[in-house]
Amino acid sequence: MILHTVNKSPYADQTLLSCLRAASEKDTLLLIEDGVYGALKGGEYSALVESAAPRILVLAPDLEARGLLDKLSTTIATVDYAGFVELTVTHDKVVSWF
């Protein structure tokens, strides 16, 4: 059980796509920093992210900073910093994609 983090916008960078190819359904993918742009609804990558194998979460403060609370895909849940820490504890390892 792996916690993946992605911190790049899928609209500018291949990092999210690489991560999704490597992640399995047992895993969790947390979108952080510019990675939160991957959690938008109605965008080019929305369908891909919404149907991805791992569970997808997004870091709330990074989402809020970028003004995206009103654009969050309905299938994606948010976590705060405390939730992030908990995820790192409940998963066997963390893989950072950056």
Partner: peptide, 18 residues
Amino acid sequence: DDGVFQIKQHQDADCIEI
């Protein structure tokens, strides 16, 4: 490209201390 995100409404970068 991603430059359009610079003028997205409701930004509040205080959350990330920027």
